[in-house]
Write a protein that binds this DNA or RNA. Sequence first.
DNA 1: TAGATTGTTAATCGATTAACAATC
DNA 2: TAGATTGTTAATCGATTAACAATC
Lengths: 217, 217
Amino acid sequence: MADEPSKRIPEGVIERLPLYLGVLIQLRQDGQATVSSARLGELTDVNPAQIRRDLTYFGSFGKRGVGYDIVSLVDRVQRILGADHVHRLALVGAGHLGSAIANYNGLRQHGFHVTAIFDADSRKVGTRIGDIIVQHIDDLTRTVADQNIRIGVLAVPPDAAQEVADRLIAAGVRIMLNYTPVIVRVPSTVTLHNTDPVHELLHTLYYLSRIDGVDRV
Amino acid sequence: MADEPSKRIPEGVIERLPLYLGVLIQLRQDGQATVSSARLGELTDVNPAQIRRDLTYFGSFGKRGVGYDIVSLVDRVQRILGADHVHRLALVGAGHLGSAIANYNGLRQHGFHVTAIFDADSRKVGTRIGDIIVQHIDDLTRTVADQNIRIGVLAVPPDAAQEVADRLIAAGVRIMLNYTPVIVRVPSTVTLHNTDPVHELLHTLYYLSRIDGVDRV
DNA sequence: TAGATTGTTAATCGATTAACAATC
DNA sequence: TAGATTGTTAATCGATTAACAATC
């Protein structure tokens, strides 16, 4: 593969690529042709030198004196991330959170297609969220395997999290997004990403208590 | 303040504290009295030396040969983060995502009380989510100021994000959780945290494409 | 050419971790 | 006491950034 890295790529680089991509797509939509690392730095709050360095891990995509061609850079970054083709998603949990995720347009724009939704509540089974009919969770293993789905999203109640995760993995899922507060155990072959609003709030909260006195109730 | 740090605390330390806290609360619930950094390391996937180092930024809370007293460590970490008292939250957007957040129990358990919900859709105004009656977004400024709310959550459509953010900040919000894919601009006095499932997926996706061949459609 | 901006080096900065003396 | 585990130092590791030669 042309984009295959020669050295180990720092985690931080991979975290920033989606950020660059988002801004680049925006610029492309605005009809811009090229962009400098300086401008990209303003738009993303990242040091321009860092942007240039991040990109050179994968090749040299810019033109000295000019900048980066936006259309081709979008293309390169998408290829690096593996976002240049469609990925099917299995969503487990058809509650408010599940519905929000299934209806979120941004996913489809980036090639993420939710093609299966599961719930344990039989009253929800058979209802539709967008184009997809909710299936019973007992059909998870078969459907995920049949559709060859590699990405799973956990939007279930906490006590179901680990069991559902195990089932998804057994059915072939390799990437999991966990929207549950539970610490889910996965084998090292699976990439797990946790999103808990509590963690995020607690984290930002620290800075609040330092900045101003805070009203202690 | 007893917990006031003497040196600059690395960002990573603050990010890990909520993780430790979650596990510690779990252990407390299980009736454990003490925990070693080794055990905490297993449960959080963090190097034990790092846990010890992280904690010593704020004092020495452990006992050599014994470990850490769980009850008092929970207390200390909560105080460090500012999670030892109640924080009111303003939630903007009463759609699926907003409902999911408002109904999420974990928030309340950590002292985060959603006390105001706003929406621009007049059909939603007056309806109830949990205990809270949805207000029209035009009441945002007054309510947020009156209730002295410092934390805002953006769960609105993308094109409304920046404007709502501006209103929240003008009304006194200092911490913002952005569940919108938009890059929101905030003054340096405001702490912003972005959560976009697309970014998270793109990020994990990179590792998938390296691990196995991936089925290119 | 003159001006702009990349790609890359080298210096700096900061974070992680191994190791161990202190001590419960 | 002997064993366990902290707190802390020092070494390692890795990431960020300033600076500038290359070059469009």
